[in-house]
Design a protein around this nucleic acid. Structure first.
Lengths: 217, 217
DNA sequence: TGCAACATACCAACCAGTCGGTATAATGCC
DNA sequence: GGCATTATACCGACTGGTTGGTATGTTGCA
């Protein structure tokens, strides 16, 4: 009935990864047992250790999948924003707005970020796993920084800011808002925090007094 | 010489809490064993279970101590800012500047926030422990919101913002910057992120076009 | 039929918590 | 003050349950 007797190794692997991710975001990596993972995935230990050589290998595979998804997600949104406007400032603002939209349309309050989960158990992971975190963070920095430098070239910022830390603000605010969301269970929080980032950029790069765009509401 | 044969239960308790906190911020709660804690604290299992009925009881005691410290820290900085200026906007800006100073003067890149560590292992803790997280978060929100409302009453914000989410920005940016700091190991990051929050508030509440304060640099 | 994809039974290491015992400090009494 | 008595602080071997991992089977598909 419910369980198709057909074998689909790729799907099984994904099911295990999905189960592990959900459990890890609630319990952390250490407290997520292999038994619990296979239980949730509807698999067995045999299947688990067939697909992953060890629990640490699962950790790396999981974060690599997550990083790839995060990267693809950012690239997709950014290219959408770039198609919607040719002005770099508008592109950045649109990018944030797109994220706001998605946050607003989420059913549950958001489970959390795997990067943040890992970093607070950093000593449990090997360097190659932590390298994925660093790479992803630095990618965010680079992508946003390049875009912001184009913005700054066209719209001289009203305050002297370095573009690196301004780029980091995207990551910071998001991660911080994830934590608050998990703490308070308020799913509107994420979008409202992103909105402030948008406000800041609008104010910072506002071309002239009258050029301040009105709130979209 | 080195080991005083005098008994000091309070100090022993603190030593255990200190050891636990340091280990938890690196390994998470689940992976922090009682043996490791007592090892680091120079204590034994007997001492541990004399002071704490269980590992979960340690978790609660630890986060309560952390929350009290966080609260006292905020109150101290805020009252210092309030003494330095009578203008609510300046008070808020000074508060951030005080935190920037502290972040800048730290020797190590900052170990992390216990609240964030706990929230990514939330399912391991009982409600009374998680309540401490919520209370602390809501306290930050309330304190900052009250201050910001006084600011907004005197300086009409240049954009329509709700003071609640603006207040939350203090917590968000801080927590997010903690995560980035842990990921990249850059101890200047924290202060530079706080600086952007200060910029935002300055721009948002800037009294008039000419009133935009020049960068301090 | 051969091999990948599972399932099941099992193991050794580890871990939170216990317990009998010891050392030190506090208290009550003369 | 001195001393018996009690309470507190601490020690460390031990235990029962748990966990990551393995060894050995079984099943489905090319």
């Amino acid at each position: 009935m419910d369980s198709p007797r057909v074998r689909d190794p790729e799907r099984m692997r994904e099911r295990i990864l999905d189960a592990a991710q959900a459990l890890i975001l609630d319990h952390g990596f250490a407290a997520t047992t292999v038994d619990a993972v296979v239980g949730r995935a509807g698999a067995t230990k045999g299947a688990f250790f067939h697909h992953f050589g060890s629990k640490s290998e699962l950790a790396r595979a999981l974060v690599e999948r997550y990083a790839a998804m995060d990267r693809a997600h950012l690239e997709e949104r950014l290219s959408r924003a770039e198609k919607l406007s040719s002005d770099p400032l508008q592109q950045v603002l649109l990018l944030i707005a797109l994220y706001e939209e998605e946050f607003a349309s989420m059913a549950e309050p958001f489970a959390g970020c795997l990067f943040a989960s890992y970093i607070y158990e950093a000593k449990l992971f090997d360097d190659s796993t932590l390298e994925v975190l660093r790479d992803s963070t630095l990618r965010w920095r680079r992508v946003m920084r390049e875009k912001l430098e184009k913005v700054a070239a066209r719209y001289p910022p009203r305050r002297e800011v370095d573009m690196e830390s301004l780029a980091d603000l995207f990551y910071s605010i998001t991660e911080g808002a994830f934590i608050m969301t998990k703490t308070l269970g308020d799913k509107t929080l994420l979008g409202r925090q992103a909105r402030h980032l948008r406000n800041y950029l609008e104010l910072l790069f506002a071309p002239a007094e009258t050029g301040v765009t009105p709130p979209i509401s």
